[in-house]
Design a protein around this nucleic acid. Sequence first.
RNA 1: UGCCGGAUUGUGUAAGGGUAGCACGACAGACUCUGACUCUGUUUGUCUGGGUUCAAAUCCUAGUCCGGCAACCA
Length: 550
Amino acid sequence: MEESGSNFIHDIIEADLKEGRVTNIVTRFPPEPNGYLHIGSAKAIWINYTAAKKYGGKFNLRYDDTNPVKEDDEFVRSIEEDLNWLGAVPTGGIFYGSDYFDKCYEFAEKLIMDKKAFVCDLTQEQMSEYRGTLTEPGKDSPYKNRSVEENLDLFRRMKAGEFADGEKTLRAIIDMSSPNMNMRDPVIYRIIHANHHRQGNKWCIYPMYDFAHPIQDALEGITHSLCSIEFENHRPLYDWVIDNIGFEQKPHQYEFARLNMTYTVMSKRYLRKLVETKTVDGWDDPRMPTLCGLRRRGYTPSAIFEFISRSGVSKTYSMADSGFLEYCICEELNETALRRIAIKEPLKVIITNYPEGKTEYFEMPNHPKKPELGTRSLPFGREIYIERSDFEKEQILGFIRLIPGGEVRLMGAYILKCTNVICGADGEVLSLEGTVDLETRNNKPIDGRKVKGTIHWLSLQHCIDTQIREYNHLFNRENVANLLEDDNFNEFINPDSLVIYENCKAEKALEGAKDGERFQFVRSGYFTPDSKYNGVFNRIAPLKSSYKPE
RNA sequence: UGCCGGAUUGUGUAAGGGUAGCACGACAGACUCUGACUCUGUUUGUCUGGGUUCAAAUCCUAGUCCGGCAACCA
């Protein structure tokens, strides 16, 4: 992961460094272990990781696990796996927000003693009423004037488990008339009698994010706490906590725009829904924007970071073109992927002028522009398969493939002429007959005639069976982020987001292709073996085509 | 009718008083035993109105539009 380029966050860091406000940069990635990481998480990782790296600082991973009912070890493991895969090493260490619960508790008591927090008995409904609205100020809780002693006693009894969930909360004393809702005496501790994935039953009171996060940042010596725009309104509260607890070294929060992409959703809520409704084949479905989905699809961490890096960082609401992500993986794979032949919809061709039982071998380059990547030999025989779409019964404007009586180059082999079309009763093409020009092995036709098209082929005797899965946009609308409010997004699901081809043929060299290997299937796209199902190749991305049928 | 942000070509992002640049896309052409890759060229932009200035995307001002905020979620 390179730290090339710059953005407004780097400008801030450079100014802080220059003015001597900070010396050692420390950033952090604070995922809540309540779901799988997605490409938007990768953006947050990249921003934090590269900011620290560029300025010689540290990058922490911190599981933000302050709510026991939502979090799970399963997600801790998946986050770890995804981070490993990305190669985002937490140079500053791995932490858990819940490991700071003792500290949080201590600071909460301090706030009480400083008359900056009180125990409130209001129910959730009541609190909502007291809070006011966006345009009207709230009013003070009737419990706001409890004495320090009473508050301390009550808070300790909350901790001791004397009260039921929701019976009491600890609230910061700030300002019920603040235009910022977050400052209207926000709850900082609530009672939850639940088993915590890491703390077990040690606690029955848990700090809220707004209280815990600045504390965690301060304790870890985070200098720049980078998060997405939605937390912008929380910054005053973040600063309030830091100031009122009295940390000497103050971390500062800065916000950037989260990643949105066309034709997909990024919120955990909707991703979960896609999984739960079985719209997709799990969190790692290759159509999902999750990191495990992208991994299974065949994307590389480098392509993902290239995409994020080149997309830039700003505070402007934006919608990244998912075609650009595809461009980034193709750009990389064009350089690195070995070329192979696979045929999605095979059409048999019998070469009538080629001896029965004869097999000859053609050396095919593994990469057209990189001879150092070697060659493999491809057997050729009297019966071959070609791609059904490379044949047309009639000449079509702009079509430069095989037609009856026409010629086409068999890639790396001879020029083939179609001499006969065998059709079924309904006119469907069953197979072809043809002849090859034996003079054209490694040669252009001697009579100088021009043969424009080149198609790929496979010897019927020597190929293996396989299945190919092509993936397209999950949604049929560019912007689905705003269209899902009514919860029935089924009508926006692209029915062709997964297309399975059952009876495909592939060259022998593809047999036993391993997890994580990526190939270019010539004239088709980039593919990788599926990690879940044997004998299946997933299409990572198609090759571009400038062929536009009229 | 509240508060906080934001607005630069189709998309994303630079330039922060001095020639609006880059990438992707689109279009046109060259090359090609992958209609890929590569190469060449073209196109389109500073939200609007005022103001300051020799000079404004940039500063001021008034609007407009967009995003976020009323969990004991993060």
